[in-house]
Design a protein around this nucleic acid. Structure first.
Length: 479
RNA sequence: GGCGCGGUCGCCAAGUGGUAAGGCAAAGGUCUGCAAAACCUUUAUCGGCGGUUCGAUCCCGCCCCGCGCCUCCA
């Protein structure tokens, strides 16, 4: 097994990954702000985080992942007020949608999904700790973090604080802060706004404090991995470091992993630009969950990912090829025996697959190892050289692949139905299809091709594709 | 301006100091009753200019272009 390496934003380098505690990895992943449906740019990062945790698990680590759900912020306060519902009710809806979307993309549930509003006490305690150490000041009921008290500020994003201070013009009237870079830990309530009555006064938490508080609550004061989109590097993650390390005096995170953006028309997909697509929109246009997951997972996470209709179709084609291959392996009839050469070929693919992923999760390269194997096995099958006993080792590789990519199981239609898309009915049942297939086989046997083709067309119209195999069998799949 | 990421076949996208993976798409072919699937063949000298080197797409310099962060943002 190759040594695992990750690119650490903190050092700016790709370095060997060694968790603090052998055999276990603690991961904090920045989750969504639940004021609306997440778009696929957001899911690019979430898919990356899922690939990350799955890979670590495949390498034998016990993974403990915490993902936050930011369920209080300016937008949520505004929108829920506008809708005339409580923050809780407003965010419940989008949290549910988020969880449904995650299921559609086969994202494994994190060990802890932490709602900000359920951790107010933890945040207050952390702020008190910071205050006790002199890192804070208050202004008009709000509490701020004074970055001049934290000399390491800027070490993650490589921002030159001194330069910024010199060039910054502080608008005191507007911010009431000593330094523009100082950030709110606790915000005083505006009239009519929802607030929490706490030991540090009424108000609501600033953005960054929730992540520090929840990460340390579940994972300890030093965690192995923290990840999110590149846009969070500054100020969000920089501020998390300041808050956390200010309070504990210990390193907060050992490896910072940042996912690059998903681009549309050479531009970052974002709500503000308006060039975003939600999963539901794609599904309503007939796209499959597996295509989306494959596309998002296939581009290494530190690369910007160009999202185009063509790339999504490409992903669909790739998934199709792999599923067809698995079906061929599972249903084919092969000569008895087993060949050492094929076992070795499979082992080689397994090794290349792992080695690619160990190199900062190079999923593109890992896929090449799988497709190379697929081609070689198909060649062997076509030549009649593939033996019965060769299927198991090859399937083993595909299982390793799917433990990470999770696209082989053909349950797209089911998932779409669960989200209210696609056909209302499941279409013909397996038994009905099998009966028609048998009928067609009989027609073929008496060389009544008109009848057999009629049945094939009829099934095709219902999205069932038939493949006659050389050994006389028939394989079918739902499109 | 500062910091960071890129520019490789029609599209997506790996990679290496010694003439470039993989997927999708396209064309032709083999197989098939016909299809489908599968396989085979065909399609790139790696943004530009210099430099280092026996040799650079990969190293260095300059330039051009795109994207992101520096304000809410995955």
């Amino acid at each position: 097994m190759s040594e695992i390496q990750f690119h650490n934003t903190l050092s700016g380098r790709t370095e060997p990954f060694v968790p603090l505690v052998p055999s276990a990895v603690s991961i904090y992943t920045c989750g969504p702000t639940v004021y609306d449906f997440a778009h696929i740019g957001n899911f690019r990062t979430f898919v990356f985080q899922d690939v990350l945790r799955r890979y670590l698990k495949s390498r034998g680590f016990r993974v403990v992942q915490v993902m936050n759900l930011t369920d209080v912020d300016d937008r949520i306060i505004q929108k829920s007020a506008a809708a005339g519902v409580s923050i809780r009710d407003y965010t419940d809806k989008y949290i549910q949608a988020f969880l449904d979307d995650r299921r559609a993309l086969n994202l494994e549930p994190p060990e802890h999904l932490a709602r900000a509003t359920e951790h107010i006490e933890d945040m207050v305690a952390l702020i008190q700790r910071l205050t006790a150490k002199g890192f804070t000041y208050t202004s008009e009921g709000s509490t701020y973090f004074r970055i001049s008290k934290f000399p390491a500020y800027g070490k993650l994003s490589k921002i030159d604080v001194a330069g910024m201070q010199a060039g910054a013009r502080v608008d005191m009237d507007r911010y009431d802060k000593d330094n523009v870079r100082d950030f709110a830990l606790w915000k005083a309530p505006k009239p009519g706004e929802h607030f929490w009555e706490t030991a540090i006064g009424p108000g609501r938490p600033g953005w960054h404090i929730e992540c520090s508080a929840m990460a340390m609550k579940y994972l300890g004061e030093t965690l192995d991995i923290h990840s999110g989109g590149v846009d969070l590097t500054f100020p969000h993650h920089e501020n998390e470091i300041a808050e956390s390390e200010g309070a504990t005096g210990k390193p907060f995170v050992r490896y910072w992993l940042h996912a690059e953006h998903l681009l549309v028309d050479h531009e970052k997909m974002s709500k503000s630009v308006g060039n975003f697509a939600t999963l539901r929109e794609l599904f309503s246009h007939g796209q499959k969950p597996s295509s989306v997951r494959f596309l998002l997972a296939s581009v290494p996470y530190r690369r910007q990912l160009n999202f185009t209709p063509e790339s999504l179709q490409g992903a669909a084609g790739s998934v199709d090829r792999l599923r067809t291959f698995v079906a061929r392996l599972a249903t084919g009839k092969f000569p008895a025996g087993a060949s050492p050469a094929m076992a070795a070929r499979a082992a080689k693919a397994r090794e290349e697959f792992d080695e690619s992923l160990s190199d900062d999760l190079n999923t593109a390269q890992a896929l090449a190892a799988i497709f190379d194997l697929v081609r070689d096995v198909n060649i062997a099958i076509d030549r009649g050289e593939f033996l019965e006993g060769d299927a198991a080792p090859v399937m083993g590789v595909l299982e390793s692949f799917d433990a990470i990519f999770a696209v082989l199981l053909d349950d797209d239609a089911e998932k779409l139905r669960a989200l209210g898309f696609g056909k209302d009915s499941a279409g013909p049942s397996d038994a009905e299809i099998d009966a028609l297939v048998a009928e067609r086989q009989a027609a073929r046997k008496r060389r009544d091709f008109a009848a057999s083709d009629r049945i094939r067309d009829q099934l095709a119209a219902q999205g069932i594709l038939l493949e006659d195999s050389r050994d006389g069998g028939v394989r079918w799949k739902r499109k």
